[in-house]
Computed example of a mutant assay.
Amino acid sequence: MDNETREAGWKYAQCRHIASPAGQYEIIRGFIAGAGWALRNLRWIPVTESLPKRGDRCLFIVGVEHSHDNGRMLGGTYTGNPDDFTMYEFATPGVTYTASHWCPIPEQLLKAIL
């Protein structure tokens, strides 16, 4: 894991249990640092271009217009939909989403979180 990733993760972890407004600001800064890293280091793949293998863990963007989850980035498993290949389904524990984009979770991040 590179130093930038480690530093952003450490800053986020340090402030997660602080309930003060200053602590909440640090949580936001940590999130922004992580989002910035993701934009610089991850390639988001449209589901119409390619899909992961069924059962692969990945990050995905919810792609359902007029849904409060539309545009939300989540991590989960590609489940596919054997009945309808135009439904690009990804699952988190207990919930299935239709996605617009996905990206593999980098090996260095998988090692860090598992």
Rank of each mutant, 00 (worst) to 15 (best):
M1L: 09
D2L: 12
N3F: 06
E7K: 12
K11I: 07
A13L: 15
A13D: 01
Q14E: 12
Q14S: 04
Q14F: 08
C15Q: 08
C15T: 13
C15Y: 14
C15D: 14
R16K: 03
H17G: 09
I18F: 07
A19D: 08
A19V: 10
Q24L: 13
Q24N: 15
Y25C: 14
Y25R: 15
E26M: 12
I27N: 11
I27W: 07
I28W: 03
I28A: 12
R29K: 15
G30W: 01
I32T: 10
G34E: 04
A38I: 09
N41M: 06
R43L: 02
R43T: 06
P46R: 14
E49H: 11
E49V: 06
E49A: 10
S50A: 04
L51K: 06
P52W: 00
P52E: 03
P52Q: 01
K53W: 00
D56K: 02
D56Q: 09
C58Y: 00
E65C: 12
H66S: 05
D69R: 14
N70W: 04
G71F: 03
R72C: 11
M73I: 15
G76W: 02
Y78P: 05
T79H: 01
T79N: 05
P82M: 01
P82S: 01
T86S: 13
M87H: 11
M87P: 06
E89W: 03
A91I: 01
A91Y: 01
T92C: 10
P93S: 07
P93E: 14
P93L: 05
G94T: 02
G94I: 02
T96E: 07
A99S: 05
S100Y: 03
S100M: 04
C103I: 02
C103N: 07
C103T: 15
I105G: 00
I105F: 05
P106I: 04
L110F: 06
A112C: 12
I113W: 12
I113H: 10
L114A: 12
